[in-house]
Amino acid sequence: MACDIAFAEVKMGSIHEPTTGRAAPAPPPRIGVLALQGSFALHAAALRRLGIEAVEVRRAPALEGLDGLIIPGGESSTMLKFLLEEDLFDPLIAFHRDGGAFYGTCAGAILLARTVENPAQESLGLLDVEIQRNGYGRQLESHVGACSCSALGEPDLSLVMIRGPVISSAGPGVEVLAKWRGAPAFVREGRVLATTFHPELTDDTRIHAYFLEVATEARQATGATLGGTNSR
């Protein structure tokens, strides 16, 4: 499992410490949305509301130059087949190793997890959690809820769970940012974020904005280690 969290320990703004007090604002991060299947267009629309035009990623070369990637909701088993059969699995792990940020919703969280159950399936292993597919049951158990999230402040997050997964355990390096029915629902490990619910189905863009911050931090950390360039 590649869980290199060293970059994320560098706090935002600590890399290009303004020396004159008039440093140019950081350019917006370049974000891709994995567009194999699922709610990728809704994620792109959420980013557009934040002024970011996302790149649709269907093949590995499209990852070039990106700072972060969203893996959308959808069917994880379908997306996994594309990752394995179309040479995307290793490039995604390399993207993380080279400093790229990730945000997975629902199926995306399943693909990022260390261990997947119900049934077991392969995963990228970039997030130290064990996750149960369809953890609440079938569509009739799909539901909405609300929970507080101190990282995002008021108002509460509204949670839309569509045949959602349940995170059954999280490693010590995983920060739990929001919980639902006792289980982690919004987690962060370094530059990897995941939600078991679908903010892309709501008008609330705070989690997307939070991800843009994480991706910006990740870029600045990478830029520092690569001698100030953003190239990957």
């Binding site: 194999l36 709610s39 959808g74 379908t78 839309v160």
Partner: peptide, 18 residues
């Protein structure tokens, strides 16, 4: 409505698929 959002939400997750 919330109920209808859950219904169309599953359809949203099936987009781009067969």
């Amino acid at each position: 409505s919330t109920e209808f959002r859950l219904k169309t939400g599953l359809a949203d997750m099936l987009k781009g698929g067969a």
